[in-house]
Amino acid sequence: MNYNNILSEKENSINTITINRPKKLNALNKETIQELHKAFKIANEDDAIKVIIVTGSGEKAFIAGADISEFADFNVEEGSNLAAKGQELLFNFIENLSTPVIAAVNGFALGGGLELAMACHFRVASDNAKLGLPEVSLGVIPGYGGTQRLPQLIGKGRAMELIMTAGMIDANQALAYGLVNHVTTQEELISLSEKIATKISRNSSVAIGAAIKSINANFKEGANGFDVEIQEFGNCFGTEDFKEGTTAFLEKRKANFTGK
């Protein structure tokens, strides 16, 4: 499929999605959000794809934020709809995908860019990355899940400070906070992300999807994560991957998972 604002490339079992608006520092506009939704949906439905990596084009930015020009004159109702639609189409959508998503954060990840990175299952950052939620400096708050996911990842107090000051932290501070899993050079960012993705791809994709669902349940209001884990654990016993994995272990060979 052809896109105006993103690139989507498949190699082996990895699908790399690149936001490709370098002149706009890869800022998210409505069209880009729609295209990202389509690309993630297609990749998630492709049985051959085991891991998705999302990154930004150029050397300056992962995503420098939302395209403010699109909503600067919105009223209350339009603003609420903007947040609701964006969360449904992209941010919550990514978080709940059964295919693991790694954010390869190069350069600035601000506002909606950091919110997209936080919606991914985990993050790898280049050593020039700068991360923050500067929305209060514009008289608004993060609207794509930032006030919810940031405290989950780094704790309430640190999230409060980062949001209230509209400040940025560098990659090493993000690593210390637990906001990113790894920091590497910009040149090695994609190769490290691919190395991790390859390790993931060797395991059972159906079990990984069940693990994602179980982990996410702990953060959903009204859901009991332990109950979801018990259900998903039981469901695994009915899969071909479980039979293959246990048989391979007993036969002392590598498992050949089908994702079924």
Rank of each mutant, 00 (worst) to 15 (best):
A248Y: 07
G157K: 15
G259H: 12
F71Q: 01
L131H: 04
P134A: 14
N172D: 06
K213R: 15
S126Q: 00
F62M: 02
E88T: 13
S8K: 08
I14T: 12
I33M: 09
A117F: 09
L133T: 14
S193Y: 01
F249L: 15
E115T: 09
I17A: 02
I230M: 15
E77Y: 05
N5C: 09
A72R: 13
G209R: 09
K254M: 08
G86M: 05
N81E: 13
N172L: 01
S8R: 11
Q173P: 02
Y177E: 04
V136H: 03
I53D: 09
L97F: 09
Q87Y: 03
F219W: 11
T18N: 04
F226S: 15
P142M: 08
K260V: 04
F62T: 02
L97D: 04
S201Y: 04
K60F: 05
T198Y: 10
A64F: 10
V76M: 11
E35W: 09
C120K: 09
M168Q: 08
G112M: 10
S214G: 07
S80K: 13
N203L: 13
N75A: 07
P100T: 05
F233M: 13
E70K: 07
P134C: 14
G58C: 04
S137V: 14
A61G: 08
C236H: 11
E244Q: 13
N20K: 01
A207F: 15
N224I: 10
D73M: 08
I141K: 14
T185Y: 01
R253I: 12
L89K: 07
I63H: 00
S98N: 10
K195I: 10
N4W: 03
A174F: 02
F233K: 11
I19S: 01
N235Y: 04
Y3M: 06
G155P: 13
E78D: 07
T185F: 05
A159R: 06
S214M: 10
N4S: 12
T165I: 02
L82Y: 04
G225I: 13
T99R: 05
Y177D: 10
L89V: 10
A166K: 06
I19H: 00
K254Y: 07
I19N: 00
T32E: 02
D46V: 04
G79F: 05
Y177L: 12
